[in-house]
Design a protein around this nucleic acid. Structure first.
Lengths: 188, 188, 188, 188
DNA sequence: CATGAATGAGACTTCATTCAT
DNA sequence: AATGAATGAAGTCTCATTCAT
């Protein structure tokens, strides 16, 4: 692994362990096992590390693959497939997912318009066509698609984050209920 | 208003404007119009200001009042009443709500176990009995109540936060859809 | 006791407990049970408290009394009498004695020439005539009287301070040896 | 000379010029010609500088060398040799000597037991065997050796410190008197 | 006189960034 | 490219002092 990747990984680890606001360059050097000056061979400043980390996280979230027979599926099958992909992403790339979610708090960067987090990144975009189709078929209520996506996003990610508090397990049964809730929440 | 409140208000404003990580003491006492030393008459250090702010925010969120005829309402009426209270809180105390939500990122405090960020603060607690009743009556699916509450919380707050990006308005129509989604998401 | 005395006592106590350099006004108020502003009714600033404390300490050390038959004593009796008075002072007014001794470290005041510590204060002055007499009588070596006094002072106070480390007791036997050492150190 | 030494030297100079309590970090790095942050590459905080300085001073005081023919000397020759070494130390390393002497006032460090200010550092230790031998030979009075050493220490250092006030010179004649006083003070 | 909340200068300390090696 | 000692601006915090009550 390159020094550059060492730095990015160290930073992401530290952000998830201690929160963005307490990650200092000193901690990054030490964790990444590089000299302090080395950072500046790869990144202009701290914002650039964070920005690059965000892009990298988004890229991972963007790299999903739909199954071969996806196009021939029924609407509800597509719906559940996409939800499953989303859930798996959250679990497999938890650090990247949470980082991307919380990124909007990092106002320094947001204010400078370096990167916009407004877009539906990753597999969430797939919902767009599914929802439109469902609305056309009279299965889903006619409402703003962006709003619909936010509702689905909330139903999936909020219970996932809540499961960290240990009140319930995010197991197969839980996932079934979430999928069902998603479908029903949009229904006529 | 007391100096102490001036300091807390200034800090909350700054956190919501610039994010927790960029709020410095200099900005706080400039905004609060107090001398730098004054902060230390009221708070031991920065963590204590943030902690007090969290407690204050929670207290506000805890201070809801149910309508007089609440107990005699139908289940769905109770359900919608509580959702409306929650939505109004989010809008009226947006700063406090967002701060409390994002607070768990502030690991310094979290790690010290100063405060538990229990997810069932405020009016969300009311959902507990409503959901149990709905499950008993065979209206709602039998699932973990904590999970149900997280689902509702996600359906309400995620679209609210998403509306800030300007894709849709968080207007009456939007609220209707959210209430409907909440009810349906739990239904059999 | 007056507020003024409360302040001086509190300060002297704190100096002996924690050392001059760590005594703050906050600690003084608290110990003296007075308001912070009260200090400024009696003292212009911190230096003035320290200076007053020094004067007070010196005054105590100056208030010794010689026995009635002192004038008719033999030289060696006078010598031992004065040494005993000095030793008793050290023990009875340890705080004041140590403060006065260490005062010269407090350069802020020293530099401003507020007070000079050069003079032989207290009972040490009595040695002057005793030494001169001893030299005239051919009992003591002819050497600078100021030097002689310093030698006596060193023989008495250094072992006293050393006894705090617990290597030996500053008991009657010890005092006898000190008196003997003093006499012999000056002898022909 | 390394930056670390620059810092220690600057601090020692400032302590002797202005006293421990008025030495600030600003003065130290201005005097040492280093940046403010540089201090923290070498020392964790101010206490650590003071502590290191004390250790360094003690090390200097420990590094005396006895003359080659010391073992074959008569008792009084040994006695005078050691006194001369002590006196020369006081003069050559006045800063270190005075710092070490006054260090016990710096209660912060003392209280933390970082360092023990044992009074028998450096050449003073040599007196131990000399005094025991003198007592065995019937030349010195039988008294606690620690007490004897304190007496000698007092006879040497108190007049040295007193000479700074300008009442007499600490010249060869003065040194002779001191050596003589030391010898006589212990004699039968 | 007595008070103590308020102050701000200045102390201590951190941290992103530079630069000679 | 890689390093890490050095830096100093900016941060947190302390403390003597003031002033309205």
């Amino acid at each position: 692994m390159s020094k550059r990747d060492d730095i990015l990984n160290a930073t992401l680890e530290l952000i998830n362990e201690e929160g963005l606001q307490s990650v200092t360059f000193q901690k990054i050097f030490k964790r990444a096992n590089v000299g302090s000056g080395t950072l500046y061979n790869y990144f202009k400043n701290k914002d650039e590390i964070i920005g690059e980390l965000f892009i990298q996280s988004i890229n991972i979230l963007e790299s999903y693959e739909l199954p071969e027979n996806y196009e021939s599926m029924e609407l509800i099958e597509k719906f559940n497939t996409v939800i499953n992909i989303f859930i798996n992403f959250m679990k497999n790339y938890e650090k990247e997912y949470l980082f991307a979610e919380n990124f909007s708090d990092y106002h320094i960067i947001k204010d400078r318009n370096m990167i916009s987090t407004d877009e539906y990144y990753g597999v969430l975009k797939e919902f767009h066509s599914i929802i439109e189709m469902g609305q056309e078929k009279g299965i889903f209520r006619k409402m703003d698609v962006a709003l619909s996506i936010q509702i689905l996003s909330g139903i999936i990610s909020t219970p996932y984050k809540g499961s960290n508090h240990g009140k319930y397990d995010f197991d197969d049964n839980c996932k079934n209920e979430i999928r069902l809730s998603c479908w029903k929440a949009l229904q006529i």
